[in-house]
Every structure is written in C-alpha cells, then in structure tokens.
C-alpha cells in the first residue's frame, strides 16, 4: 500500500472533506447560471405570449429538445476533451438514412443494428484521426461533415425514405401523464443524461476525460493514455448519435438525407450555453440538458411571439457567441 492509501482510515479533518451525494454535486455544480437563464426565458415567454405556458406546449418543448439534446450529450463528451464535433448531426443523419433504406426491405432490427454500426464507425473515424493522427478535431469533423453531407445524398440518391415500422418510431410514443405524452425518446434523453452525469463525475473514465481536456500534458505524465481516452470519447459519441437517429425517426417518420440542417450548431450551442468550456475540462451533461432546453425554449417562444424563424437563427447565433465570450472571460480571469 502506498502511504496515502494506507492512512485513509484516519480521522476526518476539518478541510471540507464532507461527502455529498453525487447527484447533488452534478446538479449544483455549474448549472446554476444556465438554470437561471432558462427560468428567465420561460418567465419572459410566459408573460409576453399567450400560448407558451401550457402543458401541451411545454411537452412540445421537451419533444423538440430530444434529438438535439441527445446529440449534445455526445457533443459534451467531445468538448470536455477540448475538441469539437461539427459532424455530429451529419453522422446521425447518415445513421438514419442507413436505417431507413435497409428498413425498406422489412428487416427493421437489422436496419437499426446497421445504423448503430455506421454511427459508431464514423465516430471511430473521427476518433482515430484526432487521436492517432493528432489532427485538430475542428478540421477532422469539418471534413467528415462535408463528406457526409454529400455521402448521405449519394447513398440515398437524394431520396428520402418514409418510416412505417412501429419499432423505428417507438421512441415517439409513451405513457400519457396528466394529458401530455411522456415519450420513450424523452425518457431516453433524460436517462442518458443521468447515466453520463454519473459516468463523468463518479468513474475513472470520467475523471480521465476531464484530465485530458484540462491538461493533456499532466494526464500523460500521470500515465493516462491520452490517445485512447480521445478515441474512446468519439466512439461513445458515435453510439449516442445512433440513439439520436432512432429518436429522429420517431419525431419525423422520414429518413431524409437533408434533415436536421441546424442540429450540428444547435448541439454546440446547447453545450456551450450549458456551461461546458470549449477549452476543455470544465462542464458536464447536466448543464447541457439545461442548455438544450434554453435553445428550444428560445426557438419555440419566438415562434409563439410571431417572430420569423430566420430571426430565431440569428438569436441562437448571438446566444452562442455570448456564451463563448463568457466562457473566455471566466477562463482568462482564473488562468494559470
């Protein structure tokens, strides 16, 4: 036993050692700011528009958040390592058209499996280029995005596939509670957030991700295999994008190679607004959940306020730049 571990049993010291449950840490960690912003947005739209604050519309907000929210979980993992995934929605779309095309033959389980394989493989492509080839994530994922945008059209001949299988649209269904439907897709999104919050804050895997994002040099010196951590993150993100693809097929039962054009940036916006630093090592998926809701509430609320969807995009753009500026400011204030 090493000296430090040998003395674990010693008396508690008055140095703030007291334990608190992990979920409380995950919740209170860095989400207070984003949470306040979310509440503010909800209050503003509730008072200024007529139909925003209703059970049905708030349930709709959740439905509208599911796909981007799930993508944003994968995006969070990547951003925590100081990377960025510009291709996340493109990978999801590729997965969904693969599912849609194979499902035409009738074998939906095979279609679903093929979709997972494709997104995981594409994650592995990102991961190996970033880790083994040490290429900047921005360039790698931009290249993958460009190739996939064309690739999805080539694969489908620019056609889209209607989805008829109940399995493939299952995530858009669910139990009705108090007049609104809680879909399985929404449950999957929340469940995945909880699972990842646990994995990031309570396991070695998570600590390694934070360490690699925070100071890759220190990570290497303490024997962390930085390349393996990076590769793993992109692969897990690919797996998460497959779930997003399944959710997307439920929400709009068409596998469209040109679908979800703004989801790449929306997911990055959600991550950044949720308090995860683009410089890596800080943040988490709980914040991303809140960030996703902020993005959706803004779009949904502006629609209710009768504002053109093009202005909504402008608003989202302003929001993400603001969030990055705040990130930058806080980073330089506490820089080494």
């Amino acid at each position: 036993m090493t000296p430090a571990t040998a003395r674990v049993a010693a008396a508690d010291l008055d140095t703030g050692v007291g334990s608190s449950s992990w979920w409380r840490v995950a919740l209170t960690g860095q989400v207070t700011g984003p949470l306040a912003a979310l509440i503010l947005a909800v209050v503003i739209f509730s008072t200024t528009t007529e139909n925003f604050f209703s059970g049905a519309n708030l349930a709709l907000v959740v439905q509208q958040s599911v796909v981007v929210g799930t993508l944003a979980i994968g995006q969070t993992l990547v951003v925590l390592t100081a990377g960025i995934d510009l291709a996340c929605a493109a990978i999801m779309v590729m997965g969904s058209v693969v599912i849609g095309r194979i499902a035409v033959s009738g074998n939906v389980w095979l279609a679903l499996l093929a979709g997972v394989v494709v997104t995981v493989l594409l994650g592995a492509v990102n991961g190996s280029l970033v880790s083994l080839a040490s290429l900047p994530p921005f360039i790698v994922t931009l290249g993958v995005l460009t190739a996939l945008t064309a690739g999805a059209r080539l694969f489908t001949d620019s056609a889209s596939y209607p989805i008829k299988s109940t399995l493939l649209t299952a995530l858009n269904h669910g139990p009705r509670v108090g007049g609104v439907t809680i879909t399985y897709g929404a449950m999957a999104w929340i469940g995945l957030t909880v699972l990842m919050a646990y994995a990031l804050t309570q396991t070695k895997w998570g600590t390694r991700i934070y360490t690699v994002g925070d100071n890759p040099h220190a990570a290497e010196l303490v024997g962390i295999n930085v390349k393996r951590v990076l590769f793993g993150v992109y692969v897990v993100a690919g797996l998460i994008y497959a779930i997003a693809a399944w959710q997307a097929l439920g929400r709009t039962p068409t596998a469209d190679p040109a679908g979800y054009p703004t989801a790449n940036l929306d997911s990055i916006t959600a991550v950044v607004i949720g308090g995860t630093s683009l410089f890596g090592g800080r943040g988490g998926v709980t914040g991303t959940l809140v960030g996703t809701l902020i993005v959706t509430v803004l779009q949904n609320g502006l629609t209710h306020a009768g504002i053109d969807s093009l202005y909504q995009q402008v608003a989202t753009g302003v929001l993400v730049v603001l969030a990055v500026a705040v990130d930058r400011l806080t980073r330089t204030r506490q820089s080494r």
Binding site: A4, T207, Y210, T211, D214, N215, H217, A218, A219, L221, V222, G223, I224, G281, R282, Q334, R336
Partner: peptide, 15 residues
C-alpha cells in the same frame, strides 16, 4: 503537471 480545473484531492490521486 497539475490539472487546474480539478479538485486538490483529484490532483493528488490523478491517474
């Protein structure tokens, strides 16, 4: 070789 965003105890047990 420390990770500035992590806690002191996390740094002591890094890796």
């Amino acid at each position: 070789g420390v990770a500035p965003a992590l806690e002191v105890s996390q740094n002591l047990f890094l890796g």
